[in-house]
């Protein structure tokens, strides 16, 4: 992890100085997340979006396709089969994009630490901006994680997507270690389906 290049922020952020403030404000207050539940954690999203906690107050909304989404929520354990789809969805999303790892399973394997089929550390394969701890996190924790992400976007610290681009080879190597079929020739060169 430590040998990763830190993104050089300014080169990527300052090209539109004049609109910088407005776009940051907009990106921060409008997060569309990809409705893609991977593990058991997805069950906590229903109370978070319905009337009791209602995340639309914060400008958060589900979107059905990765092309329109800004935020990928990995809700829990990821089996290697799902990881393939997640990487693909992540590649299809349009920059700037953010990832939230949700639950202990994404952090260190959680209760599936000895499973042959779930990955243990999410940030080896895709860059994670915010982790929400807990098994499973309650809606309050989810909301606080989302609020933290919003602050991070405002402070220009949510730079996972730049990191992914700059360290693409490293991520790709990690992915290939698990997903053997990614070694084949029929993969697009820089992915990006």
């Amino acid at each position: 992890m430590d040998d990763l290049k830190r993104p050089t922020l300014d080169s990527d952020f300052t090209c539109d100085m004049a609109f910088n403030k407005i776009t940051k404000w907009a990106q921060k207050n409008s997060l569309w997340l990809l409705a893609y539940g991977t593990g058991c954690g997805a069950i906590e999203l229903s109370p978070t979006m319905t009337s009791r906690y209602d995340w639309s107050r914060l400008g958060i909304r589900g979107s059905a396709t990765p092309r329109q989404a800004d935020l990928l929520l990995i809700t829990g354990y990821l089996s290697t089969k799902t990881l393939k789809r997640v990487i693909r969805s992540y590649e299809q999303m349009q920059d700037p994009k953010y990832v939230i790892g949700f639950g202990s399973c994404t952090i260190n394997g959680g209760m599936y630490y000895d499973s042959y089929n779930t990955i243990k550390q999410l940030d080896l394969y895709i860059p994670v901006d915010v982790y929400i701890n807990g098994c499973m996190p309650r809606p309050e924790a989810v909301l606080s994680g989302l609020a933290y992400l919003k602050d991070k976007i405002g402070d220009k610290k949510a730079d996972g997507w730049i990191k992914y681009k700059q360290n693409f080879e490293w991520y790709r190597e990690n992915q290939k270690k698990i997903l053997k079929s990614f070694n084949g020739d029929n993969m697009p060169d820089k992915y990006n389906w």
Binding site: I107, N108, G109, Y113, D114, S115, Y116, I119, K120, Q121, L124, K177, I178
Partner: peptide, 12 residues
Amino acid sequence: SLEYANKNFKFR
């Protein structure tokens, strides 16, 4: 299973 996980996945 545990051995396989240790061999293939990296723990934090």
